[in-house]
Write a protein that binds this DNA or RNA. Structure first.
Lengths: 219, 219
DNA sequence: CCATTCACATAACAAGTGTTGTGTGAATGT
DNA sequence: ACATTCACACAACACTTGTTATGTGAATGG
């Protein structure tokens, strides 16, 4: 072996950084071999040496995106409802880095929707994310911090909420500063922890004692 | 003028249809002059005759997208909360045509995020949409069907919710059939109303009017 | 020391893109 | 009837894209 494996890995990390920069600056469509090479101060020959085809680089970029999103400096999750809230906050573009990540995600949806293989991969990733949220929902319910109901459904709702909030914040960052994003999320969560539980009221016995659920102490 | 204005308009409508077909089939990135021309059974010369530049065609396509979305067969909006619900249902990809429209929207975000001019246009459109929702929120509040609170904030929340639901439904249509989408939305709306029947919608008639809506307690 | 192997650079290719110029037949105005 | 004007087709241009082939200097192994 002419070079050490450490060199190879280091170079690969350089490529990651270049890919990231290009995507952040020019979107997923702008992810081109020459753009990455230029960002890297190299030529396309380098890239074809590491990735046999463009598709390989795209898949690598998506893995990188997922990995960077997951390994983003996360909040130390609290317990119950606080843990759910933290998990949702991690999705929102509250910092410039998170905004970059979010923009890349959204811009990648175009290519993903046209590619069945990528599309199923995305579906899988989002399903996994919902499963993680679902666990926290169930935990919060056990603590009595969330209204009863199918955790999977509630998790899907929360996921939808933050996803849509991400999109809106990307297009109108001035209208959706971090503070407002957090506020909107908290309002949403507060609605899920209403004082009077809809499902706690038996339709045949509307005068029954409603289950007491205290409002969350969040923020 | 060699030809009647009617011909010109008719031809333009043909172009619209071709543009739409191309976007639905190959996404916003796949919107290319030759693809549209082929779909139209013509050459690129036709398109350059109607649109001086690619950008003009893109803007035309976006206008078409907005117009088709707005003029989509809409529900006859009810009063108060029902009107809000109808407005939100109109956003969801509940029918194949609506799914096409939604997919095109999402795939257009890539290009829009990289283009400041398009980006501000999107921000404006979404803001207008929120304003419309906001009015319905306020109306529902006046009827006592929704909890008090800033209508603009509640509208932003509902918009985020349906937007995110659209994205999830596009990537996992099997997991988010129309029935579940409606159910999720109704659960969300139920959370915004203090006292409302848990099942506001007949599962066999998801597009129908919500039933047995009870007035919330004023706290 | 020397053959080999790796890590690229260089350059060319074919395909696809938007754009532009030049035709051409048909409809129109007079 | 004739000149004009429109609505395209046709073809070429310059450019970008992914891909591929070939070269080359440096590190490595024996």
């Amino acid at each position: 072996m002419p070079r050490s494996k450490g060199d190879h890995e280091a170079r690969r990390r350089d490529v990651s950084e270049a890919v990231w920069q290009v995507m952040a600056a020019r979107g997923f469509t702008g992810l081109t071999l020459r753009a990455v090479a230029a960002e890297l101060g190299a030529t396309t020959g380098l890239l074809t040496h590491y990735f046999p085809t463009k598709r390989a680089l795209v898949e690598y970029a998506l893995d990188l995106l997922e990995q960077r999103t997951l390994s983003r400096p996360r909040r130390d999750p609290g317990k119950g409802l606080a843990a759910l809230r933290d998990g949702l906050l991690d999705v929102l573009p509250l910092t410039p880095e998170a905004a970059d990540s979010s923009r890349i995600w959204v811009s990648s949806w175009d290519a993903a929707l046209s590619d069945p293989e990528l599309s199923t991969g995305y579906a899988r990733k989002y399903a996994a994310s919902r499963d993680r949220l679902s666990e926290r929902v169930a935990a919060a319910q056990e603590l009595g911090e969330l209204l009863p109901g199918d955790p999977a459904e509630i998790a899907a709702g929360t996921q939808a909420f933050v996803l849509g909030l991400v999109v809106q914040a990307l297009f109108a960052p001035a209208s959706f500063p971090p503070r407002r994003q957090v506020q909107l999320l908290d309002d949403y969560l507060a609605a899920l922890t209403a004082r009077i539980a809809p499902t706690a009221v038996d339709p045949r016995d509307p005068d029954g004692e409603p289950q007491s659920v205290r409002r969350p102490e969040i923020r």
